[in-house]
Nucleic acid binder design. Structure first.
Lengths: 268, 268
DNA sequence: TGCAAAAGTATCGCAAAGCGATACGGTAGT
DNA sequence: ACTACCGTATCGCTTTGCGATACTTTTGCA
């Protein structure tokens, strides 16, 4: 089984600290502290947090104190450093509950799960990455990576390419240019031209297929989900195992279902 | 299907703003703003956030500005007020990844899911409530309430009673006394003595059974998960439908499996 | 066993940073 | 057209959080 404590994806596309303005609110500092854990694979000490977040140990001390009071941070049970706290889940729940896109997609995704029998999920775009927002597992499988909030890059995922295929050509190129093109598996495409070729195929077909771009043995089919204006905001995935399917049969079986599902969203 | 935008549970046991000290960091203010959404069932305007959080509109304005920059808040796509932002999921993921209890429980829970074929989940105690941290659905069912971060009270859930059964008697009483004893369904027990009686049964049996305490038609079995010191920190649930099971057969089938699972954790 | 390194806690004064009041432009809904 | 109300902007005052320093405790290694 995969180790969930370790970020599955090597360099994890950091979601741009939002460069808009330079001025640093102390609220932002609080989140800098929490964000220090994005790269962590275990409890963090005050010093480590300070190093990661670029803040003084003093500042971190005070902030950690507050965050602990509020339940957003806690000590490691074994008393080695600090860990993210339970209260963070409350906010994640609010996000899921109140997000209109998720509410719209949920029933359709459930139907798709029933129709395909495979793992299906819905993820939302955040600039260069795709963040899993809903996931329904299939009967058995890689539960390990099934956590909400996991994110994957656009350039090497089926859903990501499906999204790129609905962006203006130059914007798609820009996404790829700005992405760190690291190979996650031996078959990950890292050549911009090759990626754009796949994107073009996806534009034509209306869906994208990705074989083992992230995880060995996995095949995924992605279709874009659009907002009212027709801009891609996320993607629906159907994911299966290469032990049971080859690309052609997978697409033949599931592409129509997935596209119907997405279609009902996009004009419904 | 249930409407996920509305908090399923009426008064939602607010997780105690942590009264420890009165001094209010501005970081805490930031979270006050985010927490305003806990009671919301749609986008919130600046004024509504101000009202909910007890802050000035000016303060809220500034805080919201920062939170938006950082991606923790965003405007409603339909341009009516604000909604929680995607970045919140990043932190929820960190919580799940780095939490040692979750890492410990995950494989056991997967096994239990396979062995039972029913919905199983793991939740962590936060004072008076139980917060869902991991959930594996069964083939079909109430996906609606399946979101991570959902919380339920201790006094009327199988897992909650399982936890109470491992607390010192007076502490269990205190939990019940401090809980708002509202009936979620027509069969919810709200009499402290009756609840304690169930807790005593659970202490004896090693597991707790709850029929329709929260959701009509649902039966749940809960076993406590302990830390090294033997204190209950959470619970494992197996949940099924009363259409397929009665309490006795449900317990006969799943109590041994669930207790074995928890047992392997508690002394492993 | 004992020493060194590092972690967590505490204190305190300065100045930066956020708050509150007030005011303005835009958008609905009446 | 008028009236709320929402979001945005501006600007002093002073609250509030930061940084430097220092102390106690725990960890890890010799």
């Amino acid at each position: 089984m995969t180790d969930i404590t370790r970020p599955v994806l090597p360099p994890l596309p950091v979601p741009a600290p939002q460069d808009d303005a330079l001025f640093v609110d102390s609220i932002a500092r609080g989140f800098r502290v929490l964000s220090a854990f994005h790269g962590a694979s275990g409890p963090l000490s005050l010093g480590e947090i300070a190093a990661q977040s670029g803040l003084t140990k003093s500042a971190v001390q005070r902030i950690v104190h507050t965050l602990r009071q509020q339940g957003y941070l806690r000590r490691d049970p074994a008393d080695r450093g600090y860990l993210p706290g339970l209260r963070l889940l409350d906010h994640a729940l609010d996000y899921q509950r109140l997000n209109p896109e998720i509410a719209r997609v949920l029933p359709v995704l459930m139907e798709l799960r029933a129709a395909t029998g495979e793992r299906v999920d819905f993820s939302l775009r955040d600039d260069l990455r795709l963040v899993y927002a809903l996931r329904f597992q299939s009967k058995r499988g890689f539960y390990a990576a099934s956590l909400i909030g996991t994110s994957v890059p656009l350039y090497c995922t089926a859903g990501g390419r499906a999204i790129l295929s609905r962006l203006p050509e130059d914007e798609a190129r820009s996404v790829i240019a700005r992405s760190p093109l690291v190979p996650y598996s031996s078959r990950t495409l890292t050549d911009p031209a090759a990626i754009m070729a796949r994107v073009a195929e996806a534009r034509e077909a209306g869906y994208a297929i990705a074989e083992e771009q992230i995880v060995a043995g996995e095949i995924a089919l992605g279709v874009p989900v659009l907002d009212e204006a027709g801009h891609p905001i996320g993607a629906i995935h159907v994911a299966g195992s290469l032990a049971e399917w080859d690309a052609d049969s997978f697409a033949r079986n599931f592409a129509p279902l997935a596209m119907t599902a997405a279609g009902s969203l996009n004009r419904g």
